[in-house]
Design a protein around this nucleic acid. Structure first.
Lengths: 242, 242
DNA sequence: TAGTGGTCTAGACCACCAC
DNA sequence: TGGTGGTCTAGACCACTAT
């Protein structure tokens, strides 16, 4: 009874080999047939592993030739998502500071970013500010529904909210939607982020769902424009659609 | 010899049934076993079709129960990408105007958005402006490498660049990377987009690749902040990573 | 021609859910 | 217990690339 599935083990193994240049950009991976032998599995299982690498943008499969390792040197690993602070703390070893401005109990709003939520739920409201290079860079405001998150402390927020939710509470976060816009923000937020003359910030509104599809988190994140970058890797869908 | 694969046909069929409310949010799809019977295929094939719907955010699979149809009413269909103008022209029936400001031949730059490109290529340079509600909203500057795009006219740009590249030239666009930032733009661009006092715009830099992994297009897109929105649907990866 | 990836099959065993 | 999805197998046939 494997802790991870075979396809997962194979995928992770090849990812590591790419990361540490055992397979280099421009190389072809061993053929699927060869990978079957190497890992002692069937071809469909190998193919499921490779499909993961494809969707991550690490390889490109070319029929009749093989699986070509792509060049992702210039990108974060993997390449998708907001990189505003990942760059700074995790990769460069700086621990970014987080200041909790507010932790209280509130009812969640009935609308969010123009979306109707159908209900309001008893929640924790958390407001926290992230410093990058000692510059206040990201202001987060979020509602955490109490039915999923019965208790939370400032320490949990500072350490890592996701780690707390997943490891301590055992919540399975399944998916989320994000909307990125550029907005003039209220005076108070502009002051906190020390925006200059104009009050433009990148705003990310996110709704997160558990694996039983219950909505449990609403987040609004205000980012200093000069500290914000969103990276995306996108495979072209199969053309011809209705 | 199917024009499309079975999994593709099944996926499209179910997508249409969701789109037209034959399967409604909160419903479970027929079980995989039942879908096998309905489409006369094996289970793995059905599962590949469902995997596509899962990654599109249309369904959520729940072990022991079934495939739950998610509620995407508030979102564009499918939910990912820049919606700044899709909202306006295609869905609301307005044909947005495009003005071609420049179409000339230039050598592509050696760097792009901080990335080193290793080479410079003879290219077409296209600059075009998109109007939404008669407001100049998106300024696009792009390089199209001549080795992939031997000839291009203003009409091609106005009609639809992607349609021209794929249908007329037969190029297979495989994937692209996008970087979204918020920047103060040069005076000239601010004037074209009629930005007010401050000169902030959302900037999308994109590199597009063919299915043989050749880079063939560099695009810089400047978007009026009030006309810009980027939507993303993101499934949470399997937790525990190194 | 031999090797590659793309698709599909008909089974199998397992884990989870509801009854 | 029976139904659901999650994983895996050992084959098969096809389309494309190379030589």
């Amino acid at each position: 009874m494997p802790v991870q599935s075979k396809k997962e083990i194979i995928a992770q193994d090849i990812i590591q080999k790419i990361r540490f240049a055992q397979y280099k950009p421009g190389d072809y991976l061993p053929s699927e047939h060869r990978l079957c032998e190497l890992y002692g599995t069937s071809r469909e299982t190998v193919r499921k592993a490779l499909a993961q690498l494809t969707s991550l943008g690490l390889i490109q499969k070319i029929r009749g030739k093989g699986s070509l390792v792509l060049d992702v040197q210039n990108f974060t690993f993997p390449i998708s998502g907001v990189v505003s602070f990942k760059d700074f703390d995790k990769q460069q070893g700086k621990s970014s500071d987080i200041e909790v401005l507010n932790l209280s109990e509130r009812t969640s709003p009935s609308t969010f970013g123009g979306h109707n939520l159908n209900r309001r739920a008893p929640s924790y409201y958390v407001e926290h500010l992230r410093y990058i290079d000692n510059i206040p860079s990201v202001l987060n405001q979020e509602f955490l529904f109490k039915e999923a998150v019965p208790i939370i402390t400032k320490a949990d927020v500072i350490n890592s909210l996701y780690s707390y939710l997943e490891r301590t509470l055992g919540l399975n976060i399944s998916y989320s939607t994000k909307e990125i816009t550029v907005e003039r923000v209220p005076e108070r937020i502009a002051k906190i982020l020390k925006l200059t003359d104009d009050h433009y910030a990148a705003v990310i509104r996110s709704m997160s769902y558990l694996d039983d599809t219950r909505l449990f988190q609403l987040t609004t994140s205000y980012q200093r424009p000069d500290k914000f970058k969103f990276i995306d890797f996108e495979r072209r869908k199969n053309a011809a659609r209705s």
